[in-house]
């Protein structure tokens, strides 16, 4: 479903040209979950952003169902983010002006795939039924993360990209949130690419890929 070939990305910084990704190759089949690991600055988040169409690569290719992401115009990239993926950020990035119910349904409605029954089911599974009329700032970190996961899954995306979704949660909460995430991904049958520092969490996913200084250091099943 997703193929990455020889992907390069660098940034201009005050210190000069900084190469963050130096030729990444990766394949992710439908329904498979992949943990993306590596030390800070190894390029995990940059790779995730490139896959999400939030940034453009310097060279190399990202093929989605055989179509290169780099060839797409900005409007098509926006559609890709809207319809092709679900994004979960470490800092949740909920919309502060909308309540939980509206946040949950937002992307699904944007993508034209709003299914009230599925969203209700998600809210139940994520334990958000009692919080639907609250605003993001009135929720705890764990609750906000669950809303972010629900929002990402509400549009039934074929690919879920998660950037340290449990990074700001304690260990027990992390376990619980990940378990829920994996169950829901399983129910949907979508692929999952998750950036994490945690070996323990990574162990629960199908595969793992370790980055080191912008290169693939290890791949394991």
């Amino acid at each position: 479903m997703l193929v990455v070939e020889n992907l390069h990305k660098s940034f201009v910084t005050a210190q000069g040209h900084l190469a963050v990704l130096r030729g990444i190759d990766l394949t992710l089949e439908a329904g498979v979950s992949l943990a993306l690991m590596g030390e800070s600055g190894s390029g995990k988040s940059t790779l995730l952003h490139l896959l999400a169409g939030l940034e453009r690569a310097d060279s190399g290719r990202i093929l989605v169902e055989g179509v290169a992401l780099a060839d797409r115009r900005e409007a098509d990239l926006a559609r890709w983010r809207r319809e092709g993926i679900g994004l979960v950020f470490q800092q949740y990035n909920l919309i502060s002006s909308l309540d939980v119910a509206a946040n949950l349904a937002f992307q699904a409605r944007l993508a034209g795939r709003y299914d009230p029954a599925w969203v209700t089911h998600l809210a139940e599974r994520l334990g958000l039924q009692a919080l639907l009329t609250r605003y993001p700032e009135q929720l705890s970190g764990g609750q906000q993360q669950r809303v972010a996961i629900g929002r990402a899954l509400a549009s039934r995306p074929p690919l879920l990209l998660a950037d340290e979704p449990t990074g700001s949660l304690d260990e027990a909460s992390s376990e619980a949130v990940l378990a829920l995430l994996l169950q829901l991904v399983g129910e949907l049958g979508c692929s999952l690419l998750m950036v994490t520092h945690s070996e323990r969490l990574a162990a629960r996913l199908d595969r793992r890929l370790v980055l080191h200084h912008g290169r693939v250091a290890a791949v394991s099943e």
């Binding site: 900005e74 409007a75 809207r82 319809e83 994004l87 990035n93 919309i95 502060s96 944007l110 993508a111």
Partner: peptide, 15 residues
């Protein structure tokens, strides 16, 4: 900061 999540969720900058 309010608009960035919307952009990430699939709205264009012009929009």
């Amino acid at each position: 900061g309010q608009l960035a999540p919307l952009w990430a969720l699939g709205l264009g900058r012009r929009q």
